[in-house]
Each structure stands twice: as structure tokens, then as C-alpha cells.
């Protein structure tokens, strides 16, 4: 079987299209590269959905934490504390079994026990808490002069938030937020190892990599393939976020622009 045939059979296998049976014997390099790449579609799906939806909630959480009113501050603080203080691995398990017991009472929750929705919700809440904390930190370190200048121009309320506070917050938070996006993509590999079933062997990249490692007893081929895919995705994220970062900083003189980069000491993983 040639490599093009393999790609035709397995390139969309993780979504349920193409050959039904996974290869069982005589594993070729082409098969491993194609299937693990196919699994990457799930990682990118989870990462993109969680990042985009989580971004919105993260803004709300940051504003909630910075709010003067107890009734908005306390829920935001507790949300961040609970999500950041416990392992994502346990959160996945808990959410899956919670959806499972809800399903036995209300059939509506059936789809929540599938990875595409249930796991996406957990990742959404998780990244919202982590990025919310980053945005909150940025919100508190907005230079006092910027706000005074806004007052001097007569900006207030929503207008001031939209034109001054929010863009400055994003600009300051962006390097740390880039880090968060990278680690969110790494965290998507946990999904199929935590109860969420890979129905009909439709799994993510790590699921297929561990499938090959189990079958061939040779971890030295599938895991480096997986690593290369992830390094490629990581570089893609850095390029994309760097582009946004340049846009956020475009009004500043060259020397003051903060570059998006890895920073030791910022949030590492979950």
C-alpha cells in the first residue's frame, strides 16, 4: 500500500471518515505520521474552541475580580481559586462522571458525555480561569498616568474602558497570554485519557501515538512524531500571537514594545 493511499484512508480517520479499522500489523512510518496528524485535528479543535470562548469569559472574570462590589468579586475569586487550585486531570474526571449521572436522570445530557462537547466545556472553564487571572494582573498594572490622561480628555465609563483600559490590559497581558495558549494546547492531550471515551477509536494525536507505542513496543517512533507536530503547532501559536502583539503595540515607540516570549516564572502547566 502506497503512502498516498494511506493518507486517503487515514487522514480524516479521527473524525470517522475513511478506513474503519486501524492498522494492526506491519506498521509503516507513513501510517504513523498520517494517523497522529489526523488526531491533531482534535487537539486543534479543542484548543481553538476553548481559547476563543475562554477569552470572553476571561475578560468577565478579570473585571469581576477587580470589581468593587462583593457580589461580583467573590464568585470570580472562587471560580479562579477552584479551577487553578485543582488538577485539570481530576476536573476532567469529575466533569465526565457528573455528566454521566446527570444523563441517567435527564437524557438531554447525553451529548455532554461525548468529548467534543463535555471536554470542550471543561477546557473552556479551565482556560477562562487561568487567563482571567493573567488579565486581572494586567488590569492592576495599568500605568496610573494612562488613566489620568483618559480623565483629562473627559473619557469615562464604557468609553474609557473600550478605548483605554481594555486595550492596555490586553497589551500588558499578551506575553503571558501567549504562554497560556501554548499550554492550553498541551493540555488538550489529556482529554482521551480521562474517562471521555474515544468512540470507534476516534481519538486525538496522543491517543494514536500511545496506540502505536502499545502495539509496536517501540516508543521511539510515534512519540517523536507527536513531538514534532506539537512543536509545529507551538511555533504557529507564537507566530499568530506575535502578530496580534505587534498590532496591540503598534502605537508605541519601537523601544518600548514588549515582545511575546517565554517567561520563566509565569504559569507553566496545570
Amino acid at each position: 500500500m502506497s503512502c498516498t493511499e494511506t493518507i486517503a484512508d487515514y487522514a480524516l480517520r479521527s473524525l470517522g471518515y475513511g478506513e474503519r479499522l486501524l492498522p494492526r500489523t506491519d506498521f509503516t512510518l507513513c501510517q504513523q505520521v498520517t494517523l497522529i496528524g489526523s488526531g491533531m485535528l482534535w487537539n486543534i479543535y479543542f484548543g481553538a474552541v476553548a481559547l476563543l470562548s475562554g477569552f470572553l469569559l476571561a475578560n468577565a472574570v478579570a473585571l469581576g475580580k477587580a470589581s468593587r462590589s462583593r457580589w461580583t468579586r467573590k464568585p470570580a475569586e472562587w471560580f479562579v481559586f477552584v479551577v487553578r487550585g485543582s488538577p485539570l486531570f481530576i476536573q476532567f474526571f469529575f466533569a465526565y462522571f457528573a455528566f454521566l449521572s446527570l444523563k441517567s436522570r435527564y437524557p438531554f445530557f447525553d451529548m455532554f458525555t461525548s468529548a467534543w462537547l463535555g471536554a470542550a466545556i471543561v477546557l473552556f472553564l479551565n482556560t477562562a480561569a487561568y487567563s482571567g487571572e493573567i488579565f486581572y494582573g494586567a488590569l492592576r498594572s495599568i500605568p496610573k498616568g494612562d488613566m489620568e490622561a483618559a480623565d483629562a480628555y473627559g473619557l469615562s465609563g464604557w468609553h474609557r474602558f473600550r478605548r483605554i483600559t481594555w486595550p492596555t490590559m490586553l497589551r500588558l497581558a499578551w506575553p503571558a497570554y501567549t504562554n497560556e495558549a501554548i499550554f492550553l494546547f498541551h493540555a488538550t492531550t489529556l482529554v482521551f485519557f480521562t474517562g471521555f471515551p474515544a468512540r470507534q477509536q476516534k481519538g486525538d494525536a496522543l491517543y494514536y501515538a500511545s496506540y502505536f507505542a502499545d502495539k509496536t513496543f517501540n516508543p521511539f517512533v510515534p512519540y517523536p512524531i507527536l513531538a514534532l507536530y506539537f512543536i509545529a503547532v507551538t511555533l504557529g501559536i507564537i507566530a499568530l500571537m506575535g502578530h496580534i502583539n505587534r498590532r496591540l503595540n503598534r502605537h508605541l515607540p519601537q523601544a518600548q514594545r514588549s515582545r511575546a516570549r517565554f517567561r520563566p516564572g509565569t504559569l507553566l502547566a496545570r
Binding site: 493540555a187 492531550t189 485519557f193 496522543l206 507505542a213 516508543p219 506539537f230 507551538t234
Partner: peptide, 17 residues
């Protein structure tokens, strides 16, 4: 390398390797 690749992939790899 360790920072660019998901830690869980390393766990699964090193246990066998």
C-alpha cells in the same frame, strides 16, 4: 524540548523508554 511538548506525552514515552 520538554517545554515545547505536552508533559503527558513525556510521561507515556519515558515509562516505556
Amino acid at each position: 524540548i520538554v517545554r515545547g511538548v505536552p508533559d503527558i506525552a513525556f510521561f507515556l514515552f519515558f515509562v516505556i523508554a
